[in-house]
Structures are given as C-alpha cells and as structure tokens.
C-alpha cells in the first residue's frame, strides 16, 4: 500500500472529527433537553460519557478485525494496527469510567436515599464490575504482547489473545450487567442511547454526530501511534 492511498494519510476525516466535536460541544450544551427526575441537566453527559464507551467498542472492533487480518496474512503491519487501536480503546474506556464516576456521584449517590448512600452499594453495581473486567482483560493483552521479544511469536500469540479478549467483552459488558438488577440505565430493555422510544429526537441529532466525532478522534490518535511504530520498525530493519 502506498502511503498516499492509505486512509491514515488522508485529512478529510480528521477535519470531520474536528467539526463534529465542535458541534457536539456547542449543540450539546445549548439544545433543550427533557427535564428528567434525578438527571436534570446531567443528561447532557450522554454526548460525552456514553460516546467514550461507543468509541471504545468501535476501536476494539477495529482492533480485533486487524488481529484476524494478521492471522490470515501474517503481515506484521496488521499486528501493529491491532495493538494501537486496542490502546486507544482502553484510554477511551478509562475516560468513560472516570466520567461515569463523576456522573454517578451526583445522581445515584443520593444522601437522601439510604439504598445508594454508601460506597459499598455502588461498588456492587454489575455494570462497573463488568466494565472493569473487560478493561483488565485488555490490559493483559498489552502486557502479553509487549513481554514477548520474538516478533512473529508476539504477533501471533497476541492476535489470538485479542480475539479472546474481544469475545469476553460481550458477556462482561453486554450480557451479564443486563441480566442483573442495576442502577445504571439500560437493563433488560436494551441500550437506552440506541432505543428510539427512550431518547429524545432532539438529543439524537447531537448524539450520533458526537459518537462519530469522538470515535474519529480516537482513530486519529491511533493512526499517529501506528505511523510512529511503522517508522520505528522500518528504521530497525535498515
């Protein structure tokens, strides 16, 4: 693949990301939102907190696709792609966790409600545990991959592990938290952000562009890391 034909060197989607994120911030803070009990204005976090998790999921998907591509072709380039998409996915997941902690502190942790007053009741939240397990599995991917010195062995083992890690995402963040009772929105009825009956049509106008914008920002950062890695590999060979 020649450098100029590769998507990593194109700039139109980087511009799109910038435009969508500016739109997200301006429209996200200005549009009228439904006044829900307990949530009130914090529902605007949908454009930031929820987008982190969507971005993480998309980046992990891109990562696992590249792992499979590696296993099909044994081209080391795809191994590098997979690793960096996973890293940026983890960063987005951690940001989702951190923003969720802030949001939760002012909505669930209600001092007037004894059921959610203490930390122990919140720490039992299945969504938090599930997301923590998923992220820890991905940490193990990085540890595993970067601890093997042999290039081919590293790529092959980590590609297979990445597929397992991706498979574990589904029970730990999509299935198990949905079965157990939870304070977090989105139980057995499905994802609240994707449910057309739940989310206000006005908010959808900002939410979908926000998901695309944040995801493209993650892809942008990942491509920079990939380009640096590819350059390093090239210099090692020469």
């Amino acid at each position: 693949m020649t450098p100029t034909k590769n998507y990593m060197y194109k700039s139109w989607w980087k511009v799109l990301s910038v435009v969508l994120l500016i739109y997200t911030v301006v429209a996200g803070l200005l549009i009228k939102v439904p006044d829900l009990p307990a949530l009130e204005e914090t529902i605007r976090n949908l454009f930031f907190h929820v987008c982190m998790w969507f971005g993480m999921m998309i980046l992990f998907t891109v990562s696992v696709i590249n792992s499979i591509r590696y296993l099909r072709t044994f081209n080391l380039r795809y191994d590098i792609y997979a690793r960096h998409y996973a890293t940026v996915g983890i960063v987005m997941g951690l940001l989702g966790y951190a923003t969720g902690a802030v949001w939760m502190s002012y909505t669930w942790a209600d001092p007037n409600n004894p059921a959610t007053a203490s930390f122990s009741t919140i720490a039992r939240e299945p969504k938090l545990i599930g997301a923590a397990i998923a992220l820890l599995i991905y940490f193990a991917y990085l540890v595993l991959r970067d601890s093997i010195n042999d290039m081919d062995k590293r790529a092959r083992i980590s590609a297979v592990y990445n597929i397992f890690a991706y498979a574990m995402l589904f029970p730990s963040i999509w299935i198990v938290p949905r079965i157990l009772p939870s304070l977090h929105p989105g139980g057995s009825e499905g994802n609240p952000a994707m449910n057309f009956k739940d989310i206000d049509s006005n908010m959808r106008l900002v939410f979908y562009p926000a998901v695309i914008g944040w995801t493209l920002l993650g892809v942008w950062i990942a491509t920079l890391k990939i380009r640096l890695s590819l350059l390093k590999e090239k210099q090692m060979i020469q």
Binding site: K14, L21, I22, V25, V26, W220, L224
Partner: peptide, 20 residues
C-alpha cells in the same frame, strides 16, 4: 463554559495537527 471547552478542544486539535 462553551468557550472554555472550545479553547481546550482547539488546543488539543492544534497539538494533534502538529504531531501529524
């Protein structure tokens, strides 16, 4: 608040563009 966030985003984007 919007202006503050936009300034932060602008800084972030400029940094990324420079890296690119």
């Amino acid at each position: 608040v919007i202006t503050v966030i936009l300034v932060i985003l602008a800084g972030l984007f400029l940094y990324l563009i420079r890296l690119d």
